[in-house]
Amino acid sequence: MEIPYTVKPRPDTGLYNAKVGIWLFLASEVMLFGALFSSYILLRVGAPDGFWPDVATGWPHGLLNIPIGTFNTAVLIISSVTVVMAWAALKQGDFSKFRRFMLVTLGCALGFLCIKTYEYNEKFTHYVIRMKDGTAVTGHLDINGHSPRFWTLATITDKKMTSVKVHVDVPNQFRYPVGMKRPEVSHEAGEHGGGEHAAREIKTADITFLQAFVPATGTFFAIYFTMTFLHGLHVFGGAMVLGYFTFFGRKMYESDPERMTNRIEVGGLFWHFVDLVWIFLFPVMYLL
């Protein structure tokens, strides 16, 4: 049985069926991400004093790596350009040019995911520690020269550690909730050169809270990981589809070039949507 209107436009819609289908799908995606962005706004605006980092003056700048986020934004913008170029190459009947542009797109997708993984790992080894005297610091634990992931106060207690060595962020970039005191940190005590991090031994008995930046740490990180992971899944899914057409699309192109070109257009529309989501995610999560 032949699938109708894969190339010719359907008379009632004026579009081929796959294009109508992708726009309906993207409409559902807008609702999904729209709901998450709305949740973010409501959580941020409605957070009581002291429960949202620095609720009085703004967002905790410095907890996310802005240069890396900017670089990832550039990577996705480039991938959108190359996916359009790949589609235009198919329209001109140049399959090898299409493949070259598509390989660049896939490289960008892979690069984006690798950088995101690095960022996640950085968060999983980055800790917030609150002390009994009301002070708090952020930094990396130093356990025999390596920085562990996902530790909590219970982990330290279970290991019967009397103290932990912490490379405290200098300047400590965490903006403290209202009423929480900012600790004094020596700039000379750094061990990573240039006073970048100050090593500090903190007694376990003095700690009331210790946790890596994971979703359970707070509302911000819960929504940050939810939205960026969901976006990452979309990047992965889009790359899989585009990769399939890149490596296995020649046969279809030779038998039905217009249909193949339309499929790439549909894939490109999805890719653009995913990139557009990031264009909104980046300033909301990293800058504002």
Binding site: S80, V84, G268, L269, H272, L276
Partner: peptide, 8 residues
């Protein structure tokens, strides 16, 4: 895709 690219 052309129009959406311009929006992007």
């Amino acid at each position: 895709l052309k129009a959406f690219h311009l929006v992007f």
